[in-house]
Design a protein around this nucleic acid. Structure first.
Length: 302
DNA sequence: AACCAGGTGAGGA
DNA sequence: TCCTCACATGGT
């Protein structure tokens, strides 16, 4: 197998980027990380400032990898811009080189629908089950992989077989969202060229008009916008990030508001918007990067 | 046995 | 319009 290498822009850390919880389907086997990407499977490993890779035939892996790992992001200026206090500074120091990835929007959307009210090991299990049940098998480097199921496939699937993948109550959301995207996937292209606010509106239209995407609330929408549609100011607020915001960034909020959201476990739609706006205002246009550093730091080193 | 985990939708106040 | 609570699943 032909192994190629690509110069990674500094700073870059492959392990941090793949282990920080933004993406669910990489498998580490020996020295390499493996995954289905686009129309084939690929393996990558970092050697110093280079990324070594080999993948299925007939695919422009060089371009695919540049794009997927966001090698177009000039990370040092971004980190300088979000480095507003000692807490985030510690997170950046701990995980410098962590890059956001440019994921496929459909896979990202469905993955984060599956990621509600559960934990990462179980998310990985659910998604793997869906891929095994509904994806196509690929053999690469003597190993077995499955493509992520298309929206069309899941739109045709019956609820019982989706439930068999341990999706629980999310099965209906998965099918409904698949039907919506199978009918018209142009929303992703549309949003990519929108502002963050416009994209968010688009994904959350159900809160104004009819239901468009079931299973997508403000948090999942932010994940899709940040991880797959280039909205780097999107700042997904999950239970971990909320804990940090309440503890370390309390000064951004009125005392009464803070006590109110502390008293309750999760955020209402409105409160989410308030917390999001204040925190994005604080970190600026690359707030999504701040979020990912904080999230990973809070979960691993705090 | 309760509570938690990358939250959201339905239904009632 | 806003708030409350159920929701599948598996681990602690």
């Amino acid at each position: 197998m032909q192994v190629s290498r690509i110069k990674a822009p500094a700073p870059f850390d492959l392990n941090y980027s793949l282990e920080c919880g933004q993406v669910f389907r990489w498998r580490k086997i020996d020295e390499y990380w493996y995954r289905v990407l686009g129309y084939g499977a690929v393996k990558v490993r970092q050697i110093g400032g280079y990324l070594e890779y080999a993948g299925s035939d007939g695919i422009d892996w060089h371009g695919t990898i540049q794009n997927y790992f966001r090698f177009d992001d000039d990370l040092n200026p971004i980190l300088r811009e979000i480095n507003r206090d000692t807490f985030i500074s510690d997170a950046i120091s701990a995980y410098r080189g962590l890059r956001l990835l440019r994921q496929d929007p459909w896979e990202c959307m469905l993955s984060y629908i599956c990621a509600t009210n559960t934990n990462i090991p179980q998310i990985e299990r659910i998604i793997d089950n869906l891929c095994r049940m509904f994806g196509e098998r690929i053999i690469f480097d003597g190993k077995e992989f499955y493509t992520f199921p298309s929206a069309e496939t899941l739109a045709r699937a019956n609820i019982a077989s989706i439930r068999a993948c341990k999706t629980g109550y999310r099965a209906e959301f998965i099918k409904a969202t698949a039907e919506t995207i199978a009918e018209d996937a142009s929303i992703f292209n549309k949003i990519r060229y929108c502002t963050y606010e416009e994209g968010r509106e688009e994904l959350l239209k159900k809160f104004q008009q009819h239901k468009v995407f079931k299973g997508i609330g403000p948090k999942v929408a932010d994940c899709v916008l940040l991880f797959s549609l280039d909205k780097l100011e999107a700042l997904p607020i999950d239970v971990w990030v909320l804990k940090i915001i309440v503890k370390k960034y309390a000064s951004l909020f009125e005392k009464g508001f803070l006590n109110k959201i502390k008293a309750r476990g999760s955020l209402s739609f409105k409160d989410y918007s308030i917390v999001s706006k204040a925190t994005r205002g604080y970190f600026g246009r690359y707030a999504g990067y701040a979020q990912e550093y904080i999230y990973h730091y809070a979960r691993t080193l705090l």
